[in-house]
Computed example of a mutant assay.
Amino acid sequence: MVESLGSWWRSLTHRNDDDEHDADDDTLDDATNALLSMLPLASIVVDEHDEVIRAHPSAYSLGVVRDDVIIEDSVLQAVREVRSFGGKKQFDLTTTTAYVAQHTPKAGKLSTRQAAKQALIGQQPASKPTATVSRPNWLKVIVGKLSDNLVVVLISDVSESVRFSQVRDSFITNVSEQLLKPTQSLEQLADIVEQGGTSQQDVERNAMQLRQSCSHLEHMISDLLLLIKAQKPILPTADNRINVMDPVRVVVNSHREVAAQRNITIDMKGDESLEINGEAEQIQAALAKLVENAITYSKDGSTINVVAKANEGGTEAVISVLDRGAGIAIGEQSRIFERFYRGDNQNDHSGDGIGLGLAIVKHVALTHHGSASVWSSPGQGSTFTLVLPLAGE
């Protein structure tokens, strides 16, 4: 990549004596503009006064340029060095993009019950900006000379690959720990039996720990297999027509006992006429993940609402799961559907998760030509919505 850019710069900056371009011209010819537009990188062209005369929109959103000026000192320094001494400079850079997050009004202006009611009927609470959050950008920068007066900065945004690597490393660590737990429990049980003289109560306690570890490992493997299955798009046929309330009812009824252990009530209502085309096992698994999450992050004694209805146009089934839990931080809401991502709002009931539940929900939605989304506000709870196209006549 560096060599090809170097060849491009050399050919671009080569001038014959009879070149019609004046040496002091700080404008770009059509060929240069066209070439910069075709490059899969964000480009910035800077004149001899350090003023930005051309910049890709990403240069602004990535926090390198503002008001036609380069605001990153390392980039500006590289531009000046290349202008003075020629050659190329290549380096890594981390910036932050700040943006104003939309947040719901605090209690008093809009109660939790009001927010929940609005969410249930498909309305979003009135929003206003109340917080500024930032997102890191990992960039690779190349700086080179275009002419005596002009310097070009090329920026490659590698943020997604860096974030994926971070999530992957976290996942590997998490899964490794989970794989070790059954082995450790088995070793402890073997030690107790081998030493002899231990009480039946000790044996039973260690056997129970081993069973729990194995159960969790089985659950994790099942999630991975389900995620793999939820990759192939579902084609509508006469054989895969499903009444929406059937999987909703199965999931809710199968989780009532678990919810009741923490005095949590699950309220269910929906349109019995809604039908979709899909894989029943996948739909049920996705809904189960949403209900399980709602139970996990809800407060003891609270209520979870599960609602299925048609959208306003009558073309889609909208299944919502609403809880009154701690909510999700604004800065994390765009990432919670990523594979293996786990937010900072973990509690005593969520410690064993590996971050696949909502990824499964997203992929089930996509394979069924639908979508998954979240509305959440810290302190007011969350509403997860699974939208699926209704079956045709």
Rank of each mutant, 00 (worst) to 15 (best):
D50M: 11
I172G: 02
F384V: 02
V75A: 09
L39C: 05
D22K: 07
P182R: 09
T104Q: 14
S127H: 08
T315D: 12
T94F: 09
G86K: 08
P236Q: 04
S159T: 15
V306W: 05
V143N: 01
S222T: 13
G314S: 00
Q261C: 04
N137P: 07
D267C: 07
S373K: 11
V52M: 06
Q188A: 13
A101L: 01
Q166K: 14
G355I: 02
L235A: 14
L227N: 11
D29K: 06
I330P: 00
Q212R: 14
C214V: 15
V291A: 01
T96Y: 13
Q123R: 10
L5T: 03
Y341G: 01
F384D: 02
H363V: 01
D352V: 10
V158W: 10
K117N: 07
G270L: 01
D202Y: 08
V152G: 03
D352I: 09
L226N: 10
V374A: 05
W8D: 03
E257I: 10
A286Y: 03
D271T: 08
I283M: 14
D271Y: 09
Q123F: 08
P233N: 03
G197K: 08
D191F: 12
V45L: 05
K109G: 05
P105F: 12
L290G: 02
S7G: 09
G327L: 02
Q166I: 12
S58E: 15
N293M: 00
S84A: 15
T104L: 13
R83T: 06
L356E: 04
G331S: 14
T367S: 06
E51P: 00
R211Y: 11
L358F: 08
T94V: 15
V158M: 13
D191A: 13
A23R: 13
Q114N: 07
L146C: 04
L366S: 11
A259I: 03
S170Q: 14
A31D: 13
V203C: 04
D148H: 13
S74P: 01
E338Y: 12
N347R: 08
S334L: 07
V153T: 05
T95S: 12
V248S: 03
L210R: 11
L110G: 02
S185A: 15
H363D: 12
C214R: 14
F91R: 03
P105I: 09
